[in-house]
Amino acid sequence: MVISVVVNGTRYERDVEPRMLLAYFLREELRLTGTHVGCDSSSCGCCTVVLDGTRAVKSCTMFAVMADGHAITTVEGLEQNGKLHPLQQAFWDNHGLQCGFCTPGMMMTAYAMLRHTPNPSEREIREGISGNLCRCTGYNNIVKAIAQAAKELTTVETVTDEIAAPQKETVPS
């Protein structure tokens, strides 16, 4: 079945089996391997991507065919014009990652969360990322990183808009 998706601003058309999971579509069809797979039960969140700019989804629990006509932002889409996204910078600054396996999913969840809750409290951050597991960091520094990014994003308000997943219509196919 042929699907058309916009991933990180680029439109892709691909013929896929209906049973292909979105995570594997991104990883294997598009070779965007920053989206990871850590479980089979929609538990770990390593595979989290953002749909249509605002909605975090676990891409291992969505078929690629369901993404037809949607815009997807993956970790590879965070950096813009050679400038790290405030979340990326903050994870680096605060030692918010160790093995790095959970990191892309964690950042994508935070990305969507900060669109809904721009000034989260520590409690809200902890709640917001509670669908994403990390085995390495103990979360302290992830929480710190997201708080830093939130501050950064609210002071430079335009940043979120700038990197919002592009509307389908405006993207050249």
Partner: peptide
């Protein structure tokens, strides 16, 4: 970190 935060780590799979 620069490769991991960009999703450019290279894990087995």
């Amino acid at each position: 970190d620069p490769r991991f935060i960009r999703g450019k780590g290279r894990y087995l799979d």
